[in-house]
Protein backbone atom coordinates (compact mmCIF):
# COMPACT_ATOMS: atom_id res chain seq x y z
CA UNK A 1 0.00 0.00 0.00
CA UNK A 2 1.79 3.02 1.26
CA UNK A 3 5.23 1.53 0.82
CA UNK A 4 4.67 0.86 -2.87
CA UNK A 5 3.40 4.32 -3.67
CA UNK A 6 6.26 5.69 -1.63
CA UNK A 7 8.80 3.63 -3.57
CA UNK A 8 7.49 4.94 -6.85
CA UNK A 9 7.96 8.44 -5.55
CA UNK A 10 11.65 7.86 -4.92
CA UNK A 11 14.11 8.73 -7.62
CA UNK A 12 17.57 7.16 -7.71
CA UNK A 13 20.37 8.95 -5.96
CA UNK A 14 22.13 11.33 -8.29
CA UNK A 15 25.86 11.66 -8.07
CA UNK A 16 26.07 15.38 -8.84
CA UNK A 17 23.41 16.33 -6.32
CA UNK A 18 25.12 14.16 -3.73
CA UNK A 19 28.44 15.84 -4.43
CA UNK A 20 26.96 19.30 -4.08
CA UNK A 21 25.35 18.56 -0.69
CA UNK A 22 28.56 17.03 0.57
CA UNK A 23 30.65 19.93 -0.64
CA UNK A 24 28.35 22.51 0.91
CA UNK A 25 30.53 22.23 3.99
CA UNK A 26 28.70 24.79 6.06
CA UNK A 27 29.57 24.60 9.76
CA UNK A 28 27.13 26.75 11.68
CA UNK A 29 28.12 27.66 15.21
CA UNK A 30 26.79 25.49 18.03
CA UNK A 31 23.43 26.63 19.38
CA UNK A 32 22.98 27.21 23.13
CA UNK A 33 21.06 25.02 25.57
CA UNK A 34 17.89 27.13 25.44
CA UNK A 35 17.62 26.91 21.66
CA UNK A 36 18.30 23.17 21.53
CA UNK A 37 15.78 22.49 24.32
CA UNK A 38 13.15 24.57 22.52
CA UNK A 39 13.95 22.71 19.29
CA UNK A 40 13.32 19.39 21.03
CA UNK A 41 10.12 20.94 22.40
CA UNK A 42 9.15 21.69 18.79
CA UNK A 43 9.69 18.01 18.02
CA UNK A 44 7.25 17.10 20.81
CA UNK A 45 4.65 19.49 19.34
CA UNK A 46 5.14 17.95 15.88
CA UNK A 47 4.48 14.54 17.40
CA UNK A 48 1.23 15.83 18.91
CA UNK A 49 0.32 17.16 15.45
CA UNK A 50 1.02 13.82 13.77
CA UNK A 51 -0.35 11.58 16.54
CA UNK A 52 -3.20 13.58 18.12
CA UNK A 53 -4.59 10.42 19.78
CA UNK A 54 -1.94 10.87 22.46
CA UNK A 55 -4.01 13.73 23.90
CA UNK A 56 -6.69 11.34 25.12
CA UNK A 57 -5.26 11.20 28.63
CA UNK A 58 -5.22 14.98 29.09
CA UNK A 59 -8.71 15.42 27.67
CA UNK A 60 -11.00 12.49 28.46
CA UNK A 61 -9.60 11.56 31.85
CA UNK A 62 -10.14 14.92 33.61
CA UNK A 63 -13.56 15.37 32.03
CA UNK A 64 -14.61 11.95 33.31
CA UNK A 65 -13.32 12.63 36.82
CA UNK A 66 -14.92 16.05 37.06
CA UNK A 67 -18.33 14.79 35.99
CA UNK A 68 -18.14 11.65 38.09
CA UNK A 69 -17.10 13.28 41.34
CA UNK A 70 -19.37 16.31 40.98
CA UNK A 71 -22.55 14.42 40.24
CA UNK A 72 -21.96 11.07 41.99
CA UNK A 73 -20.41 12.25 45.24
CA UNK A 74 -20.90 16.03 45.27
CA UNK A 75 -24.31 16.08 46.85
CA UNK A 76 -23.37 13.55 49.53
CA UNK A 77 -20.07 15.23 50.35
CA UNK A 78 -21.00 18.91 50.36
CA UNK A 79 -24.77 19.08 50.48
CA UNK A 80 -25.12 20.15 46.83
CA UNK A 81 -23.26 19.49 43.60
CA UNK A 82 -22.77 23.22 43.05
CA UNK A 83 -21.15 23.71 46.45
CA UNK A 84 -18.91 20.70 45.92
CA UNK A 85 -17.85 21.89 42.45
CA UNK A 86 -16.41 25.09 43.96
CA UNK A 87 -14.25 22.91 46.23
CA UNK A 88 -13.49 20.09 43.78
CA UNK A 89 -12.54 21.91 40.58
CA UNK A 90 -9.18 23.32 41.71
CA UNK A 91 -8.41 19.87 43.13
CA UNK A 92 -9.32 18.09 39.90
CA UNK A 93 -7.08 20.53 38.07
CA UNK A 94 -4.20 19.49 40.32
CA UNK A 95 -4.98 15.82 39.87
CA UNK A 96 -5.28 16.11 36.08
CA UNK A 97 -1.90 17.80 35.80
CA UNK A 98 -0.08 15.58 38.24
CA UNK A 99 -1.48 12.40 36.70
CA UNK A 100 -0.56 13.59 33.21
CA UNK A 101 3.08 13.89 34.22
CA UNK A 102 3.22 10.09 34.37
CA UNK A 103 2.80 10.01 30.65
CA UNK A 104 6.17 11.73 30.31
CA UNK A 105 7.93 8.66 31.65
CA UNK A 106 5.95 6.25 29.52
CA UNK A 107 6.58 8.26 26.32
CA UNK A 108 10.25 8.70 27.09
CA UNK A 109 10.73 5.01 27.78
CA UNK A 110 9.17 4.17 24.40
CA UNK A 111 11.22 6.85 22.68
CA UNK A 112 14.54 5.80 24.18
CA UNK A 113 14.15 2.22 22.94
CA UNK A 114 14.23 3.57 19.40
CA UNK A 115 17.33 4.38 17.37
CA UNK A 116 16.52 8.06 17.14
CA UNK A 117 17.62 8.64 20.73
CA UNK A 118 21.06 7.32 19.79
CA UNK A 119 21.27 10.02 17.20
CA UNK A 120 20.25 12.68 19.71
CA UNK A 121 22.82 11.43 22.17
CA UNK A 122 25.51 11.52 19.49
CA UNK A 123 24.80 15.20 18.72
CA UNK A 124 27.06 17.96 20.00
CA UNK A 125 24.27 19.63 21.97
CA UNK A 126 23.71 20.36 25.66
CA UNK A 127 23.10 16.85 26.97
CA UNK A 128 19.84 17.31 28.89
CA UNK A 129 18.16 19.16 26.00
CA UNK A 130 16.32 16.14 24.49
CA UNK A 131 14.77 15.48 27.91
CA UNK A 132 14.09 19.12 28.74
CA UNK A 133 12.56 19.55 25.27
CA UNK A 134 10.28 16.56 25.81
CA UNK A 135 9.17 18.03 29.14
CA UNK A 136 8.53 21.42 27.53
CA UNK A 137 6.32 19.65 24.99
CA UNK A 138 4.48 18.10 27.92
CA UNK A 139 3.91 21.54 29.45
CA UNK A 140 1.86 22.18 26.31
CA UNK A 141 -0.16 19.05 27.06
CA UNK A 142 -0.72 20.14 30.65
CA UNK A 143 -1.92 23.54 29.42
CA UNK A 144 -4.40 21.90 27.08
CA UNK A 145 -5.63 19.67 29.90
CA UNK A 146 -5.97 22.63 32.28
CA UNK A 147 -7.89 24.66 29.72
CA UNK A 148 -10.31 21.81 29.23
CA UNK A 149 -10.92 21.29 32.95
CA UNK A 150 -11.44 25.01 33.62
CA UNK A 151 -13.77 25.42 30.65
CA UNK A 152 -15.79 22.42 31.74
CA UNK A 153 -15.91 23.80 35.29
CA UNK A 154 -17.16 27.19 34.12
CA UNK A 155 -19.85 25.52 32.05
CA UNK A 156 -20.98 23.43 35.03
CA UNK A 157 -21.16 26.49 37.31
CA UNK A 158 -17.68 26.88 38.82
CA UNK A 159 -17.22 30.55 39.77
CA UNK A 160 -13.65 31.39 40.87
CA UNK A 161 -13.66 34.35 43.26
CA UNK A 162 -10.03 35.05 42.44
CA UNK A 163 -11.03 35.92 38.88
CA UNK A 164 -8.92 35.46 35.77
CA UNK A 165 -5.73 36.53 37.54
CA UNK A 166 -6.15 33.90 40.22
CA UNK A 167 -6.88 31.20 37.65
CA UNK A 168 -3.90 32.11 35.46
CA UNK A 169 -1.55 32.28 38.44
CA UNK A 170 -2.68 28.93 39.77
CA UNK A 171 -2.26 27.28 36.36
CA UNK A 172 1.22 28.81 36.00
CA UNK A 173 2.22 27.41 39.38
CA UNK A 174 0.79 24.01 38.44
CA UNK A 175 2.81 23.96 35.22
CA UNK A 176 6.00 24.72 37.16
CA UNK A 177 5.30 21.96 39.67
CA UNK A 178 4.36 19.44 36.94
CA UNK A 179 7.51 20.20 34.94
CA UNK A 180 9.60 19.59 38.07
CA UNK A 181 7.71 16.44 39.09
CA UNK A 182 8.28 15.01 35.60
CA UNK A 183 11.94 14.46 36.44
CA UNK A 184 10.82 11.68 38.80
CA UNK A 185 9.25 9.91 35.81
CA UNK A 186 12.21 10.53 33.48
CA UNK A 187 14.37 8.85 36.12
CA UNK A 188 11.97 5.91 36.38
CA UNK A 189 11.76 5.57 32.61
CA UNK A 190 15.53 5.17 32.45
CA UNK A 191 15.56 2.54 35.22
CA UNK A 192 12.62 0.38 34.14
CA UNK A 193 12.77 -1.68 30.99
CA UNK A 194 9.33 -1.41 29.41
CA UNK A 195 6.70 1.32 29.06
CA UNK A 196 4.26 -1.02 30.83
CA UNK A 197 6.36 -1.31 33.94
CA UNK A 198 6.81 2.49 33.95
CA UNK A 199 3.03 2.85 33.78
CA UNK A 200 2.53 0.30 36.56
CA UNK A 201 5.01 1.85 39.00
CA UNK A 202 3.78 5.37 38.23
CA UNK A 203 0.18 4.38 38.98
CA UNK A 204 1.25 2.76 42.22
CA UNK A 205 2.84 6.04 43.32
CA UNK A 206 0.27 8.45 41.87
CA UNK A 207 -2.94 6.96 43.23
CA UNK A 208 -2.01 7.18 46.93
CA UNK A 209 -0.41 10.59 46.34
CA UNK A 210 -3.44 12.17 44.69
CA UNK A 211 -6.16 10.47 46.75
CA UNK A 212 -4.26 10.74 50.03
CA UNK A 213 -4.54 14.51 49.87
CA UNK A 214 -7.17 17.22 50.25
CA UNK A 215 -8.05 17.13 46.53
CA UNK A 216 -11.43 15.44 46.98
CA UNK A 217 -12.39 16.00 50.60
CA UNK A 218 -11.40 18.03 53.61
CA UNK A 219 -9.16 15.73 55.72
CA UNK A 220 -10.93 16.75 59.00
CA UNK A 221 -13.03 13.56 59.04
CA UNK A 222 -10.03 11.27 58.45
CA UNK A 223 -8.36 9.30 61.27
CA UNK A 224 -5.48 11.12 62.93
CA UNK A 225 -2.66 9.09 61.39
CA UNK A 226 -4.06 9.65 57.91
CA UNK A 227 -4.43 13.37 58.56
CA UNK A 228 -0.72 13.40 59.41
CA UNK A 229 0.10 11.69 56.10
CA UNK A 230 -2.12 14.06 54.14
CA UNK A 231 -0.49 17.00 55.88
CA UNK A 232 3.02 16.14 54.63
CA UNK A 233 1.89 15.15 51.13
CA UNK A 234 3.15 17.86 48.72
CA UNK A 235 0.04 17.39 46.61
CA UNK A 236 -2.03 18.67 49.58
CA UNK A 237 -0.01 21.87 49.67
CA UNK A 238 -0.31 22.26 45.91
CA UNK A 239 -4.09 21.80 46.05
CA UNK A 240 -4.35 24.29 48.93
CA UNK A 241 -2.43 26.88 46.91
CA UNK A 242 -4.44 26.35 43.73
CA UNK A 243 -7.69 26.47 45.67
CA UNK A 244 -6.58 29.60 47.49
CA UNK A 245 -5.50 31.45 44.37
CA UNK A 246 -8.66 30.56 42.49
CA UNK A 247 -10.85 31.71 45.31
CA UNK A 248 -9.04 34.97 45.88
CA UNK A 249 -6.68 34.37 48.81
CA UNK A 250 -2.90 34.32 48.42
CA UNK A 251 -1.41 31.74 50.78
CA UNK A 252 2.18 33.03 50.61
CA UNK A 253 3.63 30.40 52.92
CA UNK A 254 2.03 27.59 50.97
CA UNK A 255 3.25 29.05 47.65
CA UNK A 256 6.77 29.04 49.09
CA UNK A 257 6.29 25.41 50.13
CA UNK A 258 5.27 24.43 46.58
CA UNK A 259 8.17 26.30 44.99
CA UNK A 260 10.68 24.75 47.38
CA UNK A 261 9.38 21.24 46.71
CA UNK A 262 9.53 21.94 42.94
CA UNK A 263 13.16 22.97 43.21
CA UNK A 264 13.92 19.94 45.37
CA UNK A 265 12.31 17.57 42.84
CA UNK A 266 14.55 18.86 40.04
CA UNK A 267 17.61 19.07 42.27
CA UNK A 268 17.26 15.42 43.28
CA UNK A 269 15.82 13.67 40.23
CA UNK A 270 17.38 15.86 37.52
CA UNK A 271 21.00 14.86 38.19
CA UNK A 272 20.08 11.20 38.78
CA UNK A 273 18.24 11.20 35.45
CA UNK A 274 21.24 12.69 33.67
CA UNK A 275 23.67 10.15 35.13
CA UNK A 276 21.36 7.32 34.06
CA UNK A 277 20.89 8.90 30.64
CA UNK A 278 24.63 9.26 30.10
CA UNK A 279 25.30 5.64 31.05
CA UNK A 280 22.31 4.19 29.21
CA UNK A 281 23.40 1.16 27.24
Amino acid sequence: MNATTAEQASAPVTEDALRSVLLAGERPSRPGPVLTSLTFGWRALLKIKHVPEQLVDVTMFPIMFTLMFTYLFGGALAGSTQAYLQFLLPGILVQANVMTTMNTGITLNTDIQKGVFDRFRALPVWRPSPLVGALLGDVMRYSIGSAIVITLGLVLGFRPEGGAVGVVLSVALLLVFSFCLSWLWTMLSLILRTPNSVAGVSMMLMFPLTFGSNIFVDPKTMPGWLQAVVEVNPITHLATVVRGLMHGSVPAGEIGWVLVSSVLLVAVFGPITMVLYRNKK
Binding site: L46, K47, H50, V51, G115, V116, R119, A122
Partner: peptide, 17 residues
Protein backbone atom coordinates in the same frame (compact mmCIF):
# COMPACT_ATOMS: atom_id res chain seq x y z
CA UNK B 1 30.31 14.43 18.41
CA UNK B 2 30.63 17.62 16.42
CA UNK B 3 32.84 15.93 13.79
CA UNK B 4 31.27 12.55 13.19
CA UNK B 5 27.98 11.30 11.79
CA UNK B 6 26.29 8.14 12.96
CA UNK B 7 23.76 5.98 11.19
CA UNK B 8 22.71 3.24 13.55
CA UNK B 9 21.57 -0.23 12.72
CA UNK B 10 17.97 0.60 13.49
CA UNK B 11 15.97 3.57 12.27
CA UNK B 12 17.81 6.59 13.63
CA UNK B 13 15.21 9.13 12.61
CA UNK B 14 11.84 9.88 14.20
CA UNK B 15 9.27 7.75 12.43
CA UNK B 16 6.35 9.94 13.48
CA UNK B 17 7.82 12.99 11.76
Amino acid sequence: RSRVGLTGQFASVDEDL
